[in-house]
Design a protein around this nucleic acid. Sequence first.
DNA 1: CTCGGCAAAATTGTATATTATTTGAAGGAC
DNA 2: GTCCTTCAAATAATATACAATTTTGCCGAG
Lengths: 225, 225
Amino acid sequence: MTIGDANSSTSERVCQLIEQEIAEGVYEDGIRLDEARLSAQFSVSRTPLREAFRMLAALGLVELIPHRGAFVRLPSFTRLVDMFDVMAEMEAWCARLAAQRITNAQLLMLRAAANGCADALSRNDTAAYYEENALFHDLIYQASGNAFLAEETRNLQRRLRLFRKEQLSHGDRLTASMQEHSEILRLLEIHDGDGVAEVMRKHIRVQGVVYEEMLRERKPGMLRQ
Amino acid sequence: MTIGDANSSTSERVCQLIEQEIAEGVYEDGIRLDEARLSAQFSVSRTPLREAFRMLAALGLVELIPHRGAFVRLPSFTRLVDMFDVMAEMEAWCARLAAQRITNAQLLMLRAAANGCADALSRNDTAAYYEENALFHDLIYQASGNAFLAEETRNLQRRLRLFRKEQLSHGDRLTASMQEHSEILRLLEIHDGDGVAEVMRKHIRVQGVVYEEMLRERKPGMLRQ
DNA sequence: CTCGGCAAAATTGTATATTATTTGAAGGAC
DNA sequence: GTCCTTCAAATAATATACAATTTTGCCGAG
């Protein structure tokens, strides 16, 4: 999405706070976010709170019903799989285009990001891995040469962030993920569009599955049904 | 996007009014939408106006800069092509999935919509064609079996609406478009995923080109550059 | 005992006032 | 003369007050 949004504004801050609370499982699905209660809780007025609701609605986390209020809408498992499928397809397409158009300079940066992932992995630094991983993927979006596609993919990634956060630390997914990065890099270097698209599709799609496993262990109440 | 938005609310109304004005070429690209002036013009307070700005930002028509205001961001021609490319790819994917999953009942409805297009064409009723055409495409989104993909595709269609409105009446695009519908329907009936994806991709992509032709003739000032 | 309507309470939507931030220009220092 | 600082004006962000809408509970009629 093309929003040059406020970053340190009250509404943005409140949006992130509520997002975090949703992630922590504070709210059941379908619950109404009470304006009065939340404005008291966060010590803000209702105006920025309502703007935060709109941001959350844009993220698909709440539904705004006129004269009724803002209701938490956690995705069902089916829906989450659908979302990861779309994400996988978009990233695969980015990779396919990137294979055709990527420059040597971009390949160099991509290799640096891949090495950054490897370093973080050797240090068992999941936070750093998360950062470098994000950079790796973003570089591919950029290399696609379609700025709009890059933005939309970034946006969907943001929307799925909530459901990807902890999964990198699940099992040996980190190691597998990094090996896939190497393969992706190799295929981009030889400009194999079909090949890299296929690897990327699997690379993303597996996250939906991993998430589901993780979910069963830890937070059975987070999703609907 | 998953917004069960207000429909008859002031903010929604204002959003549509501004969208219309943008479509009419009232605003140059990069111009700031003055809160005070617009609230006077539409006789509404600044609160719903600001909510309308957020909706327009979600549509990608304006950019919100903190403490600066809302600035009109008309897409450049390059960007519009990028957007139509993404749209083409998403519709193609919808069609590919639909080819695998479509039911006989859905095929029946699709055929009805195609016939509706034909009828409208024979009556030279572009408005009716527009409606039936939208239905035809939406049925394919639904038949994809991926609800999230269907929503996102619908959403992008909405964002591109402004740049597609008059183009159906351009040249004999209407006739060509209908022939493509027939072909799409035929390929869906024989469940040819690759085939229907390819036809659909071209069917959408051509719109970007058609738009550009139309633009040169009528509104050279509507896009950037 | 149940169903329908009315009324009051709760809650969202809108308007206005206040505060904080930014920007641009003016004035002084180097 | 140029650059930096500062102050004022403009304007977005927030708070609060008000209006409109919806929901719910109560009362009465059937």
